[in-house]
Simulated assay, not measured.
Amino acid sequence: MQKLHELLRMGDLAAFVGIVDDGGFAESARRRGVSASTLSRSVTRLEAQLKVTLLRRTTRSIEITPEGAAVLAEAREILDRSETLQEIATSGQAPAGPLRVNAPVPYVLHVLAPRLAEFHAQYPDIQLSIDMTDALVDLIGSHADVAIRLGRVPDSEMLRRPLGRTAWKLVATPAYLDRTGWPETPADLAELKQVRFAAPDHINTLRFAGLADPVPVPPAVTAGNGEAVRQMVLGGLGIARFSDFMIAEDLRAGRLVELFAGQLDAEPLDISALYLTRVSGLRRLGVFLDWLGTISIG
């Protein structure tokens, strides 16, 4: 097979890799802001130069051929090396280029978003793109350069940079407690209502130092989004426990009050930035990770 680095069009290689990662021409075209026909021509050129079929195409899906899989692996390496060489060549210039970040919704809303103007002022030539998901993602498949995650990180090939820890706090609105009665002991919480997280369920378990069993609190409502739970608590539906960064401003403003501070038995969550070895040398990633360290919490 002809060496891929002898091909004249790096853009065709990038288009091919993107089509596979995105699962099809239409989605890849949408992400890149080009037409599907433009991407199709790129793949056709590659197939003509290599004299192999890379993708089997139908109206609904694509299937990579064995030859295409071999080309894909080498294409990734070439594109990675090309980007690294570009970083070296521009090392005297300000960091620039696209940087794709994946992070949980609450972290983006309460930690990143309020401070991103500072990062943009320092590095105006870095184009940030932020996707929000709570699940651990495949960095290649999701097009992410770095993922921010809360809690224990499973062993993987990804590198990890600690960004701090976040403690749990049990809170409610003063108006809700005025209406239902302020609990004097953790056991009194059983007389209140709890706004619950659909997942993970362990967030809803309220254990306290000195008590052998968790305190059972009847549910008021269950929601699948942390921000929805927060808004319901602010609306006076009940109590809930949150990572402290989610409700720090609410506590400072008096919209929420903490219940039994220091008595909640819940291990703090680690906050980590995860990234791959193949992008660890990119200066724009490096300065972003350094900046994350300056806004870390806990």
Rank of each mutant, 00 (worst) to 15 (best):
S37Q: 14
V20H: 02
E74A: 09
A69H: 08
A228R: 14
W291L: 07
L50V: 03
R60P: 00
P174N: 07
L50N: 02
I297P: 00
T44M: 03
V257S: 08
D155G: 08
D21R: 15
R57G: 02
L109Y: 11
D131M: 07
S91C: 04
P124H: 06
G262K: 06
L289A: 02
T65G: 11
T44D: 06
A94T: 10
L274D: 09
L136P: 01
H110V: 05
E184V: 09
V101M: 10
A167H: 12
I140L: 11
E27Q: 13
H202T: 07
F260I: 12
A172R: 07
P66Q: 04
E249K: 14
H5K: 11
T65P: 13
V108H: 12
Q231C: 02
G293W: 02
V101T: 10
G92I: 09
D213C: 01
Q127M: 06
A14E: 15
R149S: 13
V229G: 12
R152E: 14
G11C: 02
R41K: 11
E227V: 09
L99M: 02
S91K: 05
G164M: 07
A175M: 07
G238N: 09
R57N: 01
V221Y: 00
G210Y: 04
L289D: 01
I62P: 01
A48V: 04
E267Y: 02
S142Y: 06
T44W: 00
G92L: 14
P219S: 15
A175N: 07
V153N: 05
V71L: 02
T294R: 14
A220N: 01
I271A: 14
L189Y: 02
G298S: 08
E27V: 12
A48D: 13
S35C: 01
P95R: 06
H143R: 15
W291D: 05
Q127R: 15
V257F: 01
T38F: 12
V217P: 01
P104N: 12
H120A: 15
V257L: 08
R57P: 00
E67M: 04
R207D: 03
G226E: 10
E83D: 14
H143C: 03
V171M: 07
D201F: 06
A73Y: 01
V257C: 08
E258G: 05
A212V: 10
L13H: 09
S129Q: 12
V217N: 00
E227P: 00
A36I: 00
A261H: 10
L7I: 14
R152K: 11
A209S: 10
A223C: 01
S296L: 06
S142G: 05
D244V: 12
D201P: 00
E87I: 05
A248Y: 03
P104T: 10
L46K: 03
L264H: 08
S28A: 15
V221F: 01
R284H: 08
A187I: 06
D145I: 07
L7Q: 11
S42H: 13
G281A: 13
P154V: 12
P214W: 03
E87Y: 02
D155P: 03
A48G: 10
S61H: 05
P95F: 05
A147K: 09
T173L: 07
E118V: 15
A36S: 14
R149M: 11
G286M: 10
A198P: 01
A223E: 12
H5Y: 11
E249C: 03
M158K: 13
I19Y: 04
L189K: 02
R32L: 14
W168D: 06
G92N: 13
L72H: 11
L282R: 14
S35H: 10
